[in-house]
Design a protein around this nucleic acid. Structure first.
Ligand SMILES: [Zn+2]
Ligand SMILES: [Zn+2]
Length: 346
DNA sequence: GGTATCGGACGATCAATCAT
DNA sequence: TGATTGATCGTCCGATACCG
């Protein structure tokens, strides 16, 4: 009930893995390249003129920028600080990576059951809020299956430029994985255009010609994808540098690069600004033009989830897990290791 | 208005593979 | 043996249903 939504508040809990939205230090202004859409007036919606001057939006809830962040309070709380990133939009999505969602290592049983965000604290925020503190404990991770055969791997060699050359696997060794080469969801292969500084993730702006010297397109034109199907999907662009992000556990602290006065994003190529008029003024609505078309490519949807929303399976009239599924939590997570639906419970 | 439900995307982990 | 790949498992977003 204490809706603490500053401006687009993320999550209630303070120990969040991502830094607070500080007005001043955060969103610098950046330019988003005009949408190369050829025809169809971009301003038709009242969107700003091409060289959009925008500020970085506040961290979308649960999202984090995949770049170093100022260390959190260090209260033994959230493991890592990562900067929130922003949700790409249609045009942007072509080159933009999507914001990364940070997850807690282990959600408490209540949150897990309810499929809601949890936090590191033990009576987690949510449980506290709903008075479930007493039952707020983390569940038990099931052990991963072993002895599963896998078939040949595709090797991705990298050139100095960071291009990834995928060497196709044996023609017939059809592995047990999706034929498309795509791991499972859209986790596309990364395509490093420009190596990010150590410990940083790779990021790009759409249509943004990075200050790359001459041979920019890294020797010719190396199509970003290896699957050839996703024409530059968001996720296809940046992902943690494929080759082992050097000095940092993917999820957390980013040691170096703490420039006193200069916010980290300055050192880093950032995701395109979403469309926010001005920071601190509340965020009315993103400019329409940036909004991606309804779903087409399910994998491409905004936050990853696309056409969500479903009908209730059963009238909750029965043993509905009281306040968050304490009722029969485990029952949901019955499935194990299917493949497609990922071990999702429910 | 709030909370509950839940499909499915996405993140993180780690065993199987592969290169050295 | 170390590095890399990719499947598995877990988290949780976000739409919808239900309830007071
Ligand atoms: Zn919790
Ligand atoms: Zn809890």
């Amino acid at each position: 009930m204490h809706a603490q939504h500053p401006a687009l508040a993320p999550y209630p809990y303070a120990g969040a893995p991502y830094p607070p939205l500080h007005a001043g230090a955060y969103p610098p202004f950046v330019y988003a390249a005009p949408v190369p859409d050829g025809h169809h007036d971009p301003n038709a919606n009242g969107a700003p003129q091409p060289p959009f001057l925008m500020a970085y939006p506040p961290p979308p809830p649960g999202m984090v920028y995949a770049i170093p962040a100022p260390m959190p309070p260090a209260n033994g709380q959230a493991p890592g600080g990562v900067y929130p990133q922003f949700a790409p939009s249609a045009s942007i999505s072509q080159v933009m990576p999507r914001p990364k969602r940070k997850q807690v290592k282990m959600a408490c049983t209540n949150c897990a059951t309810a499929c809601k965000r949890c936090d590191e604290a033990r009576p987690c925020e949510r449980c506290l809020k709903y008075g479930l503190a007493s039952t707020c404990v983390d569940g038990v991770r099931k052990e991963r299956k072993k002895g599963i055969k896998r078939g040949p791997y595709k090797r991705k060699n990298k050139s100095l430029n960071g291009d990834t050359i995928v060497s196709a696997p044996p023609p017939q060794g059809l592995p047990v994985s999706p034929p498309n080469g795509e791991a499972h969801d859209g986790h596309a292969q990364s395509l490093p255009y420009m190596l990010a500084p150590e410990g940083y993730y790779q990021y790009f702006y759409p249509g943004f010609a990075p200050p790359v010297p001459a041979h920019a397109p890294a020797d010719g034109s190396q199509p970003p994808q290896q699957n050839g199907s996703t024409n530059g999907t968001p996720s296809a662009v940046a992902s943690p540098t494929p080759q082992a992000p050097p000095a940092q556990p993917p999820a957390s602290n980013h040691p170096s690069l703490s420039h006193p006065g200069v916010p980290p994003y300055f050192h880093q190529v950032y995701p395109p600004p979403f469309n926010y008029p001005t920071p601190g003024v509340g965020y009315p609505q993103p400019y329409p033009i940036m909004v991606p078309p309804p779903a087409q490519d399910p994998k491409n949807d905004q936050n990853g989830d696309s056409g969500k929303g479903k009908k209730r399976a059963h009238p909750s009239g029965s043993a509905t897990p009281a306040t968050n599924g304490e009722g029969d939590p485990k029952a949901k997570r019955a499935r194990t290791g299917q493949d497609d639906t990922n071990g999702v419970g429910h």
